[in-house]
């Protein structure tokens, strides 16, 4: 019996996966997933089958982000439909395998939810990454998690930018959820970051269990930070960076950056100011892996999304 006329209906989310090691040197996810592969009691819920899975074992072995190419950019239609063969980069082969196991992407057989566990060197705290503003299931889940972990905070980053959106490992699922926790250096495991990630997962799985049991979630609003622009480091003609993130901006992820605020500091000590037209909210500030992606940080804009009521289909 729905108390809301226009509640969105979804199938039960019975097939859930937790991905770790999509980047082999982001240790919280690698460690948690390895732990759960051995003993999955902690992630089991009624009416849900949760599969912990190491997505890039060779990169985990090397403790490097990737072997040939970034797995978390490899799930494009071209890659997934490329003729199979040993000459394909390791991560493209791996993307095809993962797509077969957890997808196919976009098909009714695909997994319902995939959580992909990441760490960042940026001071982002706990961040949930949402790939679509119209995914009311995910919006409700994120709202649930935010409430459950209060007063600790967990922010939502929305990336549906036509150019900056990329084809993630989790995108194989119907409801892809990225989880990014920092700051933590690559190759390092910090207990506080590890525990924070573990708690978010607990609440996320609780939400799915409640949903599957038939609980109806009333309409709500979710504050998100929408990816708006990529900002690169100043570079010389050879492509080498000539400046660092300014000390006033370093570690200030999610805080307003206003026109005229210091943004970079050159290696000889000069300050470069932000010249954009209005206030933005930078994040992924000084992420180690993004030097090679020509990104010092991304700017976002705050907005409030409306999530409609949801409940499961009566079968």
């Amino acid at each position: 019996m729905s108390s809301y006329n226009n509640s969105a209906r979804f199938n039960e989310a019975r097939k859930v996966a937790i991905f770790g090691g999509t980047h082999g040197n982001e240790m919280s996810g690698v460690t948690l997933v390895n732990l759960w592969v051995k003993n999955s009691a902690e992630i089991q819920r009624k009416r849900v089958e949760t599969k912990p899975f190491i997505t890039n074992p060779r990169a985990v072995e090397k403790c490097s982000r990737y072997v040939d190419t970034d797995l978390n950019r490899a799930f494009s239609p071209e890659n997934l439909s490329a003729p199979e063969g040993d000459n394909l980069p390791y991560e493209v082969q791996r993307a095809q395998e993962i797509n077969r196991m957890f997808g196919p992407k976009g098909s009714p057989e695909a997994y319902d939810v995939i959580f992909d566990l990441h760490n960042t060197t940026s001071n982002m705290g706990c961040t949930l990454i949402l790939e679509s503003s119209k995914d009311h299931f995910n919006l409700q889940m994120m709202n649930y998690i935010k409430k459950a972990i209060a007063p600790a905070s967990c922010l939502v980053l929305l990336n549906e930018h036509p150019l900056l959106k990329y084809s993630t490992s989790r995108s194989v699922a119907k409801h892809p959820v990225g989880l990014e926790v920092g700051p933590q250096p690559q190759g390092v495991l910090r207990s506080n970051i590890f525990e924070a990630m573990r708690i978010i997962l607990k609440h996320a799985l609780d939400f799915i269990e409640l949903f599957n049991e038939g609980m109806e979630f009333p309409p709500c609003t979710v504050e998100v930070f929408r990816v708006s622009e990529r900002v690169d480091y100043p570079r010389d003609a050879n492509g080498n960076i000539i400046a660092m993130v300014h000390p006033n901006l370093q570690d200030c992820d999610w805080e307003p950056l206003n026109p005229g605020d210091p943004m970079f500091q050159t290696f000889d000590g000069k300050t470069i100011h932000y010249q954009g037209p209005g206030t933005v909210y930078p994040t992924f500030i000084n992420e180690a892996a993004y030097y090679e992606k020509q990104q010092a940080f991304v700017t976002t804009r705050r907005e409030t999304l409306l999530a409609s009521a949801i409940r499961k289909h009566e079968n």
Partner: peptide, 14 residues
Amino acid sequence: GPQPHGVVRSNIYT
């Protein structure tokens, strides 16, 4: 330190 490897932090550099 502390500075993650693969990152340059302005305070540490200075």
